[in-house]
């Protein structure tokens, strides 16, 4: 299979401050890949830089063999869609307004959305279970509903590559898993998914491949069972990480391990406080 995304020798950061050096990886069609790492490791920065939302410091980003700089804004938006971490929608825009925004790259500047665009937007909303929210202002819906509306927008953009930046942050367990299921179903349909993930257990369960960021570089790139090792995760998260396989469903389960010494320290401090 051909690579749809090629990243080589990429340095990313803000201004002159470099956050991650020398990133190299490729994505194939239909892959579902999770980016993990501790807070501040540069996961979202990496995703934004690859999408062209932040300037890169060095290196090459290619989509379908063509470098990022050769794409104009609209053409790129027909190849890659991006769901950002926090979206604040004011002014009483409805769910349908948001999803219809996904059709923007396909329209000439003077055109209006066609009936076909509207039908597609409504189908995307039906798929994500938000059709009932089509005419409701987004400010009136819950966090989970808003996220599903935004996923419908990403779907309406009809791109072969989908970037999701922490799509499950702030959502309850049911919504979190639902979003991973959506992503997996889309990958099965041939879309390439690259997502920043915080929930390691869900990443282990759903992602085919994991990119682990830590120590200012791409520490590991491989299948979940190759990356989710105690040694690698402990290095990346600067903590003692424990990885176990659930004997019932064979899923990997990741948690932190606290040493006896730390536990005693904490207990002593708690005694002082309480």
């Amino acid at each position: 299979m051909n690579n749809v995304v090629d990243i080589s020798n990429l340095d990313i950061g803000y201004g002159s401050r470099c956050v991650i050096r020398n990133v190299n990886f490729s994505l194939k069609q239909g892959e579902m890949v999770g980016i993990i790492g501790c807070n501040g490791a540069g996961k979202s920065t990496l995703l934004k830089t690859i999408r062209g939302l932040l300037p890169k410091q060095r290196g090459v980003v290619k989509y379908m063999g063509k470098s990022l700089e050769e794409y104009d804004d609209k053409e790129l938006a027909t190849k890659v869609s991006y769901l950002q971490q926090h979206v604040e929608v004011g002014f009483g825009y409805t769910g349908k307004d948001i999803v219809m925004a996904g059709r923007y790259p396909y329209m000439k500047w003077w055109q209006r959305e066609s009936k076909a665009d509207e039908d597609l937007a409504l189908n995307c909303m039906s798929y994500t279970g938000t059709i009932d929210l089509a005419d409701r202002p987004v400010t009136e819906v819950s966090g989970g509903q808003k996220q599903r509306i935004l996923i419908a927008k990403v779907l309406a953009q009809q791109t072969p590559i989908i970037f999701l930046d922490e799509p499950t942050t702030g959502l309850d367990m049911v919504y979190q898993e639902e979003i991973f299921r959506f992503a997996k179903a889309l990958a099965a349909k041939g879309k390439t998914i690259l997502m920043v993930v915080h929930e390691l257990n869900l990443a282990a369960k759903y992602c085919q491949r994991i990119l682990l960021l830590g120590e200012g570089s791409l520490l590991a790139d491989g299948k979940p069972q190759e990356v989710f090792t105690e040694a690698l995760l402990s290095r990346a998260y600067k903590a003692d990480i424990q990885v176990e396989r659930n004997p019932l469903n064979q899923n990997l389960e990741i948690s932190t391990r606290i040493s006896q010494e730390d536990r005693e320290k904490e207990a002593a401090l708690l005694d002082k406080i309480c």
Binding site: R51, E75, L76, Y82, L83, Q84, V87, A101, Y104, P105
Partner: peptide, 8 residues
């Protein structure tokens, strides 16, 4: 960001 993401 949202506007850029849809190609504006």
């Amino acid at each position: 960001t949202e506007a850029k993401a849809v190609g504006m």
